[in-house]
């Protein structure tokens, strides 16, 4: 008997099943297809500005720093300002992300930008998050040439851009965005990083120190006009109706 068969038969012996029972197979297939939602804390159930406010507060509670900008045009100036204040040289690494590529970096000609994964020699990197999660102040980043994973862990300072309309209330909503984004043909990326604050350790005398093996500082920049986010009750109702209609007509999300 192969090791695999040995493990499976031991489990089935323990459970008193054969593995062929149709009702059990259906229960599992349904659970995987429907992925029902469990208990979602009410904390994140906020809209617009209030949701972003919670997101920023939770980032700061996790020892990160955060700021808001009205549009991507303001980003180069804000980044240069951050570097100056931290006493860092005007250099930055990023991936091939389209949003970051579209930022008018030429407004700050002093800023040296390199593109691609990090080899460990960069002090500062900037990434573009797939989503922000207000509930816990968490960023969701995915691997790929757009935003290489090494940028999340090797530089001392990690700047992360979050578009305001991608800030969601809770973890479940972020996973829903991930499913939408990845689609059936792609599946999951190699890594999905959920990041809440800068790296830390309390392994020596339970003294909390920032900057263990990853970034010493995490700076989150939420970009988007806050006025556009404050949805009116009428708009909210319209959106809900449209979503309900879409749910009725479209096939279940394939994975």
């Amino acid at each position: 008997m192969s090791a695999r068969e040995q493990v499976f038969s031991a489990i089935r012996r323990g459970l008193g099943v054969t593995g062929d029972e149709a009702p059990r197979r259906k229960i599992v297939a349904d659970r995987l297809a429907d992925h029902p939602t469990g208990v979602v804390p009410s904390r994140g159930k906020l809209e617009g500005d209030e949701r972003i406010g919670l997101f920023l507060r939770m980032i700061e509670r996790a020892a990160g720093t955060a700021m808001r900008l009205a549009g991507p045009d303001e980003l180069p100036g804000a980044v240069l300002d951050y570097l100056k204040r931290a006493g860092l040289p005007p250099a930055l690494r990023r991936g091939e992300d389209a949003y970051l590529a579209g930022v008018p970096w030429n407004r700050t000609p002093d800023l040296v930008i390199t593109i691609g994964p990090s080899d460990g020699h960069d002090l500062v990197a900037i990434s573009h998050a797939v989503a922000g999660i207000a509930e816990t102040g968490t960023l969701m980043l995915t691997s790929g040439s757009e935003n290489p994973t090494t940028l999340n862990f090797l530089p001392d300072h990690h700047l992360v851009v979050v578009e305001a309309d991608t800030v969601v209330g809770d973890l479940e909503a972020a996973f829903a965005r991930l499913r939408e984004r990845e689609g059936a043909e792609h599946g999951m990326p190699r890594s999905v990083d959920l990041i809440t604050g800068p790296s830390r350790s309390a392994d020596i005398e339970q003294t909390l120190i920032l900057g263990a093996h990853g970034p010493r500082r995490l700076h989150v920049i939420v970009i988007g006009d806050p006025r556009k986010l404050r949805a009116s009750p009428a708009a909210r109702k319209r959106r809900a109706k449209a979503a309900a209609a879409a749910a009725e007509t479209s096939p279940p999300v394939a994975r």
Binding site: T136, S143, G144, R190, D193, L194, S199
Partner: peptide, 15 residues
């Protein structure tokens, strides 16, 4: 903690 600093989901090798 509300959430640990790094919760990472690894699926397969690099694409």
């Amino acid at each position: 903690q509300e959430m640990s600093v790094y919760t990472t989901l690894f699926t397969g090798p690099r694409r």
